[in-house]
Write a protein that binds this DNA or RNA. Structure first.
Lengths: 215, 215
DNA sequence: TCGGTAAGCTGACGGCATGACAGGACAAGT
DNA sequence: ACTTGTCCTGTCATGCCGTCAGCTTACCGA
């Protein structure tokens, strides 16, 4: 499917090569967590991996190229987000639970991949299609499921006709992503993490069903 | 209030100096709009301003320092966002209009300052307190007004007791900011800008009042 | 066991951005 | 014209970037 892993100059990477490559990616991930994206240098990543800059350039065209790899890897893990919504109900108490579990799972995922998601968000906002596609790949699973749920309720007449399911779903997903990125910001507004989640779930529930949840 | 503008080495800047300084800031702004943050170099900004890198370093410690200035300037303009909510009603048709105008004004502001806001968002997400404070300064005006409105309705018994006004307000503001940053993303979900706004307004109204708007 | 071949790594190098400084250009007041 | 303080830039040491030739290592077939 993906074909063989290749170096920049076209050689196929063997066992040792792939290990080095992966180590560089891991070290890059760590660097992204500990220092601003702007200050992440090839030489630092290489040093951290116990190798030389020249080796780095064998496997990646530049820092951005390597970041894209890290992001791609993370995006495949993001497929698990689909499970948060698959076959769930939005009616009654079950609906409230669905909303809660979505918020919980989403925030957890974002927290776990905080550093790389920051960079993906930036790249997407800057209009880079590669980052933008990765961001879509992650959000689409959640977004599509949400939009379907809204469209379903709409078909049954439980949601107004003039609601655009995709727009509402997208806005809710954007909200979750943004809140996850700036959780610390809420603390200065006197909102604790534990308080935040149910309020987010409330908004999600309101957005999807148009009604307050029954708890 | 802010005192005199000073160079890095402590001299007070005169008329000519301030003009040069401002020109550098303007050129930096342009650079941020046209190229990725990571690739904005002092030498490019200086060249664009028709001066030398050494001059840049007389007024700013580094690119980040200059970016903070641009952001600060933008943040003061952001005070105008307060007007979108001051003295507005959230009841009946007026409530729907309030929500619409908030969404409109917010998106417009974000669009106008897109480039610098991207960088502020990144800096804040990375935990840099300076960027984080600027982000707060912009969002606080809207957030506080929203939280007050919710708390008001809550006091009147129109909103559930277990809603945390600050949390809901913060989440709604985060949603607006995120959607504004990634408007292009919605196009690939088949959502046009014109469709997006009323749906955002709907979510805002739902979040604040807990009820569907009367149009 | 022994080469042969391809993978894997690095030292070294030209090029460019950074950041500091000292000195020259310039404007304003006397 | 002279002085004073502001303003700008040429220059330099330093450090990262990105490339290449060449060396080492692992694998494999004879």
């Amino acid at each position: 499917m993906t074909g063989q892993v290749r170096t920049v100059d076209g050689r196929v990477a063997g066992r040792r090569g792939q290990a080095t490559r992966q180590k560089l990616l891991d070290c890059l991930s760590e660097m992204l967590s500990s220092s601003p994206y702007r200050d992440v240098k090839v030489i630092d990543v290489a040093r951290k991996a116990g190798t030389s800059p020249a080796t780095f350039y064998q496997y990646f065209p530049d820092v951005e190229g390597a970041v894209l790899e890290v992001a791609e890897e993370m995006a495949t893990h993001g497929a698990a987000l689909t499970e948060l919504l698959e076959g769930r109900s939005w009616v009654g108490k079950a609906g409230w639970q669905t909303a809660q579990e979505l918020v919980d799972g989403f925030l957890e995922f974002w927290r776990k991949h905080e550093a790389i998601l920051r960079v993906v968000d930036l790249g997407a906002a800057e209009g880079d299609k590669r980052f933008y596609k990765i961001r879509m790949k992650i959000l689409n699973s959640v977004n599509n499921s949400l939009a379907d749920a809204i469209a379903d309720l709409q078909a049954k007449g439980r949601v107004d006709k003039d609601v655009n399911p995709a727009a509402v779903a997208g806005a809710l997903v954007a909200m979750l992503a943004s809140v996850a990125s700036h959780q610390k910001g809420f603390q200065s507004w006197g909102v604790k993490q534990a308080e935040l989640k149910p309020n987010l779930a409330l908004l999600v529930h309101l957005g999807v069903t148009g009604k307050k949840p029954t708890k």
